[in-house]
């Protein structure tokens, strides 16, 4: 090796450097392309799955779990006898290929045998969520909840309209009419439709039936509109609700002002009464 031609030696070392550079560059390129592709891909998927304003078939898992579990086969769509369900196409601006419905076009007619749910191969539509005592029960469906636009609903104006109330398959439970005196005329009554979210399944028959140009009663996914009380407020008059007290935790915050008992400061007049 020692008596190697210096020119050949130089060339050999040069090739080695080139090989090393090629390897490092190649690795860097692969890592870079994977990172680039991964970021673009995940950004896209994150965007298209961010649409929370989408109404799912009955028995659907929570949206996050639903997106992980739905295989986009469309068997629920095929099972639906009313063509209510559709698969999101490109251009619908909905998570691609997943089933949804638009109640103003075709609402869910709440079939008692719920044909769309048992056909689901992956359990994204879960029979257990719409079953009581081993029997399918469509009234347990939770596709969304109806919300009334009380400014534009003509029943709230005093005009007699009970289209949504009569369309509701759970009439007097999911939607009931609240009678109120119309002070404007002095002799008429308001028949105001009120939604009880405990019963509303979000089938959308009311939205379909609404007589205004754009429906003033709309189905919205439950998690969008239903608030949460945590354990800060409990109905003292409701035995069932009082049970939530068990989970309640007291948070005591001490500040500069509240570190001493209120009783102490109440009796301390700060020298006001001194002569």
């Amino acid at each position: 090796m020692s008596n190697e031609n210096p020119q050949i030696k130089k060339k050999r070392e040069q090739t080695m450097v080139d090989e090393r550079r090629k390897f490092i560059l190649g690795t860097a390129r692969a890592v870079g392309i994977v990172a680039l592709g991964g970021l673009v891909w995940s950004a896209y998927v994150d965007e298209v799955t961010a649409n929370k304003l989408i109404l799912r078939p009955p028995g659907a898992l929570k949206e996050d779990d639903f997106l992980a579990t739905c295989i986009k086969c469309g068997m629920c769509v095929e099972a639906c006898p009313f063509d209510t369900l559709k698969l999101a196409n490109p251009g619908d601006n909905k998570p691609l290929g997943t089933p949804y419905f638009e109640p103003r076009d075709i609402p869910c007619y709440m079939c008692p045998d719920i044909p769309c749910v048992p056909v689901c191969p992956t359990g994204a539509l879960d029979e257990a969520l719409v079953t009581t005592d081993g029997k399918l029960d469509i009234n347990l469906a939770d596709m969304g909840v109806a919300v009334v636009d009380t400014k534009n609903c003509i029943a709230f104006w005093g005009i007699q309209c009970d289209a949504c109330y009569r369309a509701c398959p759970l009439m007097d439970q999911a939607i009931y009419l609240k009678y109120e005196k119309n002070e404007r005329t002095g002799k008429h009554a308001f028949l105001k439709p009120i939604v009880d979210s405990d019963f509303c399944t979000g089938c959308g028959l009311c939205e379909r039936a609404c007589v205004t140009k754009k429906a003033t009663i709309t189905i919205v996914p439950r998690e969008i509109v239903i608030g949460s009380l945590d354990d800060h407020y409990i109905k003292g008059w409701d035995k069932k609700d009082e049970k939530r007290l068990k989970n309640a935790k007291a948070d005591i915050t001490t500040t500069e002002l509240s570190k001493e008992s209120a009783m102490d400061s109440l009796n301390d007049m700060g020298g006001l009464l001194d002569d």
């Binding site: 995940s42 997106l67 295989i71 986009k72 196409n89 251009g91 998570p95």
Partner: peptide, 30 residues
């Protein structure tokens, strides 16, 4: 990505699925 995002990553971009869904269920912008 499926693991990180918690959704089926390829199924949301798959042109294969778009194509056969377009054929079977209606084309839209597929």
């Amino acid at each position: 990505l499926s693991y990180i995002l918690g959704v089926t990553a390829f199924e949301f971009i798959s042109p294969i699925s778009i194509t056969h869904r377009a054929i079977i269920f209606g084309v839209g912008l597929g």
